[in-house]
């Protein structure tokens, strides 16, 4: 492996920070006092953001429900996808039986489900959560199946010769061994879930961040449209950050192993 020297501390901060800081500063100064209809001053955007979303009531009426729906939807996808994935991964017959259906849904662009889910559930949280689950569960499910299937043959034989119980096999062998691949599935699922919470609120809700940003655009509230977009960006970033933290914690044995052996 190539020796990668990463500068430490404040030098790294400087290296990584100069470009984003410059860009924001440029935006701030160039837009200051801007009369252009579509490009309000950054200062105005940020003040509105703080006033409406942090000091104002919107964090309770729009932000929290969005986050709750997202958490329920993504959480359900994770639990359902992992459980079914382990089940199907361990049973070749079931897997073959459902393969065409799974392949179809994995490739299906989930927003195509909007009219049907809306038709069945109408506007509201139920619709939002369902759409997330229907979109995010497939990559999780299929990655889990793949991960479970590729548990090493010799490991399987070891497990059989020591007569481990089914529960032991799943918790101590199958899940950890498939872990990296399962988390790869979660990562794709997360990306889709973040897209879908926004989409589902744009088309199937009467509040929430997605609703807010589209509504602002349609009402020609330009500053608010900017605010909503920036907020969605920040939230997408934070959710991903939290997820990556959790991933690193759960898979830390693997990271340490890689560091210790230099293997991939």
């Amino acid at each position: 492996m190539m020796a990668t020297t990463t500068p430490g501390g404040w030098r790294l901060l400087l290296l990584r920070g100069w470009l984003p800081v410059t860009l924001v500063a440029l935006w701030w100064t160039l837009s200051a006092g801007s009369e252009a209809l579509y490009f309000p001053p950054l200062q105005e955007i940020l003040t509105t953001l703080v006033d409406e979303w942090i000091l104002g009531p919107r964090w309770r009426s729009d932000l929290l429900p969005s986050l709750a729906n997202f958490t329920i939807g993504f959480g359900t996808s994770v639990l359902l996808g992992t459980a079914l994935g382990v089940l199907l991964g361990m049973s070749p017959v079931m897997r073959a039986l459902f393969a065409p259906v799974l392949t179809f849904f994995r490739s299906l662009p989930s927003p195509a489900l909007i009219p049907i889910v809306l038709g069945i559930l109408g506007l509201g949280a139920g619709m939002n959560v369902s759409l997330i689950v229907l979109g995010a569960v497939w990559p999780i499910l299929l990655n889990t199946i793949d991960g479970v299937r590729s548990v090493d043959t010799q490991l399987r034989e070891m497990v059989r010769s020591y007569r481990l119980s089914r529960r032991q096999i799943i918790t101590h062998v199958v899940l950890p061994s498939a872990g990296p691949q399962i988390f790869a599935g979660y990562r794709i699922g997360l990306q889709i879930a973040i897209i879908l919470i926004v989409v589902s609120e744009m088309v199937g809700a009467t509040h929430g961040l997605g609703y807010y940003v589209l509504e602002s655009q349609q009402l020609f509230m330009i500053t608010q449209t900017w605010v909503g977009t920036i907020l969605l960006g920040i939230i997408g970033y934070l959710l991903t950050l939290i997820f990556l933290r959790i991933e690193r914690r759960v898979l830390r044995w693997q990271i340490r192993m890689r560091q210790a052996t230099g293997a991939s």
Partner: peptide, 19 residues
């Protein structure tokens, strides 16, 4: 596999659980 029989496999790196 009987309960009172144990197998040691050729490839230790694939029979010990790294986690």
């Amino acid at each position: 596999p009987p309960a009172k029989l144990a197998v040691i496999f050729q490839d230790y790196s694939r029979s010990l659980l790294p986690w």
